[in-house]
Design a protein around this nucleic acid. Sequence first.
DNA 1: TTAATTCATCGTAAATATACGATGAATGTT
DNA 2: AACATTCATCGTATATTTACGATGAATTAA
Lengths: 110, 110
Amino acid sequence: MQRTLSDIGYSTSEIELAVMAKALGHPVRIRILRLLAGETCCFTGELTGLIPMAQSTISQHLKALKEAGLIQGEIDPPKVKYCIHRENWAKAQALFGEFFASEKSGGCGC
Amino acid sequence: MQRTLSDIGYSTSEIELAVMAKALGHPVRIRILRLLAGETCCFTGELTGLIPMAQSTISQHLKALKEAGLIQGEIDPPKVKYCIHRENWAKAQALFGEFFASEKSGGCGC
DNA sequence: TTAATTCATCGTAAATATACGATGAATGTT
DNA sequence: AACATTCATCGTATATTTACGATGAATTAA
């Protein structure tokens, strides 16, 4: 990675899209988000019960999702309750929606 | 990566979402897709003119997008004309749309 | 045939991602 | 105070990603 990203001058939405997409780029994180997007649960412990992976691994994936802004954690000692970050979720929905809706390459003939 | 993905038993849509999201997980690939989704161009050579990266690197990113099914290449010797893969694009649009629309975690109180 | 053009692939170095178990921090319980 | 519970973080090994330049394959042009 010799060339830094800033050399190209990406727009904010390009960065935001890439960051969120990267966070979605692993099936277990899709699974986690689907579980959190449902109405059933929000605790980390429940996730470790539902997903056959080490607790540390799940925590790592939760961290990635949190850093991408897709989820948020609320401390409820000694547990941590994870939820969809609704504001950013809506933002992601809008960004991806606009992105996919922008397809208008009719003039290429392919 | 000691645990294989198949141990968990992901659904088809989970895999498909993750694969496409992973392909979207780099800003230069977002940029490329935006350029291709526009009506301006489709040739690799034009992309190398528009993006300050080595030709080999751009080709590598194009390969990633192609493997994810988001674009397709049409040989027009000695050039290659790249286009959005419309069918899969629509599929991705639907998958991401459904995914983000599934947020109904009202019962969690977070 | 020879040269030029276009693009993919190879080889490589460095960075990042992904899994695990072990440990530690924070809080509640006895 | 001592213990248990829950979760994050550390350390580590391996795999993947990402960038580059160099080379090769395919086709067109001279």
